[in-house]
Design a protein around this nucleic acid. Structure first.
Lengths: 251, 251
DNA sequence: GATCATAGTCGTCTTTCTGACGATAAACAC
DNA sequence: GTGTTTATCGTCAGAAAGACGACTATGATC
């Protein structure tokens, strides 16, 4: 047993590196996509990886994740209180610290999950390295054995981030984080359909979201950008938890 | 922006200490209780704190948490697959790394949540320092301003662990982790009542839990240890998620 | 301009689930 | 026996969800 003297003894701690890795998700063309960057040096040189980097000595974990997100996408993150939809939602996901996850040294990575609206730039960030939005369906699941694996344990981190997003939009209003500031009920429905990979009944969905107090606030205008009859425009209401929740079919 | 060369550069990382802290919860006498240990040295000497300690260079985060849990309580933890109720449930909670959370140096703590059945020993562990089960109602909420504060940011960690437990028994079968291997429906109901701090209708609760496939498996026997009519004994079924969930009243 | 396709919105019906609560059953205390 | 306690089964009204019909308002096409 570690005795009391060594519990927080600052002179005898084992050396660790601490990083943040980001699972940045968005919905593009009816598909849930994750942001990947290409590694420029070993190990895993040339592999696609989640964006991330070292936590600096004077910044918190959330600050580091927010900084990395801004560097990669230009988005300003707001964790917690979710009223405005401009900017991205950011929350801590989980921490990964298997002793061998980095072949060179002991690295503990605090993964974060970011949900962003569809960004205008196909290749985000001003980064000289490659960066792309990859459909998660091509990265996870029983795909072809010849697909490019992600660096480190990033496939595991991505999978847990995607599952977190899928489950979180059930009982929270977070799906609006994937939308622009103003959006229609149909656009919000297509977000759910893309994240869950299912088709939802437009009539029941409309009844559900417009009947949940605080979820949507009519902004007054209408749009026909989706074709068909003009649709009412909404902004995200102050509600953060949905009661009752939006349940995934079958699951 | 951190360039590609420094992303995982092992020769230039800032030094961090990495610890695990444990939120160990149990139900004792109709109350949700957390395990606390008394600190024997500064900082926060004499304060009550969550059990925890350094992650060793050759062990993973979950291993470190499991080891600390065994050292403090003698429980063998099993994360993930929850069939047997002997031993405790253990899962990662969140990671806390504010630069100033430890006054001496940069410490990142990976908090874990453990759910344990009521242990026979009132003061668990063979530890010479003090250790106790404290009702969470005395530690959190708008209590008297003169109560003992916890060391470091452990009150925050405890609050998030308690909230995680409260929400997780809604949609998972984890409440059985608070019970002995064999338990009655009434005992399981008292677990929910203690964790949520509410009273539940025994008839509706019985209908709900016995009607959820895979939640409870009759073990054949009966018991009168709660008084009254003999109650059927159950063990935890293989189900991990409850569909539909057990919803907290009002919330 | 009439017709068609598309998307949005309002209703209806049936089934399922919940919350409130009555009633019965089987033990123990006296 | 009577009373108390806990367990278990049933009933009923209201809420919510899934399936789906019907109507509306726009742009596209003939």
């Amino acid at each position: 047993m570690i005795d009391a003297m060594s519990r927080y003894d600052p002179s005898a701690f084992p050396p660790f590196a601490v990083t943040v890795d980001l699972v940045v998700l968005t919905v593009r063309e009816h598909e849930l996509c994750a942001l990947l960057v290409r590694r420029g040096e070993p190990p895993f040189q040339g592999y696609w990886a989640l964006p991330g980097g070292f936590v600096r000595p004077d910044e918190g974990l959330g600050e580091a994740a927010s900084r990395e997100l801004a560097e990669e996408t230009g988005l300003r993150a707001h964790s917690g209180g979710g009223q405005a939809t401009a900017g991205a939602h950011l929350e801590q996901l989980a921490t990964y610290g298997h002793p061998q996850r980095d072949p060179r040294m002991r690295v503990v990575s605090v993964a974060h999950l970011a949900l962003a609206p569809d960004l205008p730039t196909p290749k985000p960030g001003g980064d000289a390295r490659g960066a792309r939005w990859a459909p998660v369906s091509e990265l996870l699941g029983p795909g072809p054995a010849d697909r490019d694996p992600l660096a480190f344990d990033h496939a595991l981190i991505l999978a847990e981030g995607v599952e977190r997003a899928r489950s979180k939009i059930e009982y929270s209003a977070l799906a609006t984080a994937f939308c622009a500031e103003e959006f229609t009920v149909g656009e919000l429905r297509r977000v759910y359909e893309a994240v869950w990979g299912v088709a939802l009944d437009p009539r029941n969905f409309h009844r559900k979201v417009t009947g949940t107090p605080g979820f949507l606030v009519p902004s007054g205008g209408t749009t026909t950008r989706q074709g068909g009859r003009p649709a009412q425009l909404f902004t995200a209401g102050g509600a953060t938890v949905l009661n009752p929740p939006m349940l995934r079919p079958d699951s």
